[in-house]
Simulated scan of single mutants.
Amino acid sequence: MSTIEVGEHLYTIKLNLTGMTEYGVSFSDLTSGSISPPAEGARFDAAFEGQATGAKLNGTVSGVDYMRVRGDGRMELHIHETITTTDGKNIDAQGDGVGIPRPEGEILDIRVNMTLFTSLEDYKWVNPLQVWGIGVVNLAEGTIEVSCHAA
């Protein structure tokens, strides 16, 4: 693999939300604005799956975002996912980020900071990378799209 340049696009993920574990607060009530976040915040586990496509990395993606919504409404993301490449190899991806609800509701702007890891020789080039992602969550459709770049 050639040298990865800062800012270089690595891949884009397109995901579908596949499940939501709630811990005392309804996610749909919270994100629709029918209730406010409790003072102590709220916790959710958002399962997802989909595809990664790009010039540098392609495959399927599955994982969970262990999300916390603070009392002020800011969403803190704690992401654990597996990228399974088109040749069947697994890459671990972990990161954190924020979700910022748009005023019109149902849409979140997200920013993520990810690290990737594998011991597989053909994919070790991912290990030193810091990956920054910018994307959008459409809660009405249950979709997520993030463009991921080398930092």
Rank of each mutant, 00 (worst) to 15 (best):
G95W: 09
F48K: 10
Y123S: 00
M114Q: 01
A93H: 00
R68C: 04
P101T: 08
T84R: 12
N58A: 04
I83Y: 09
A93W: 00
K56I: 04
N90L: 13
G73V: 06
R74S: 11
R74P: 13
V98Y: 02
A42W: 02
Q51F: 07
G99R: 00
A46Q: 05
G99S: 03
S119R: 14
A55C: 02
R102S: 15
A55K: 10
E106Y: 07
I79Y: 05
A39L: 02
I107R: 10
L120G: 07
A93F: 03
G99D: 06
D45C: 00
S34Y: 07
Y66A: 13
A46S: 06
E81W: 12
V112D: 01
G41V: 12
R43Q: 10
A52E: 01
P101F: 09
V61K: 07
S32D: 08
H78I: 14
E76G: 15
R111S: 07
P38V: 07
N58S: 06
D65K: 04
L116F: 08
Y123V: 02
E49M: 08
S62F: 13
K124Q: 06
P103G: 13
M67H: 06
I79D: 03
S119F: 06
M75F: 10
A55Y: 01
H78E: 07
R111C: 05
T115W: 08
I107G: 00
R43F: 10
L120M: 13
T115S: 12
W125Q: 02
T85V: 10
R111Q: 05
S62N: 08
A46T: 14
G73K: 05
A39Y: 06
R74D: 13
L77F: 08
D45N: 05
G54A: 03
I100P: 04
I35P: 12
E104D: 02
T53K: 15
E81L: 14
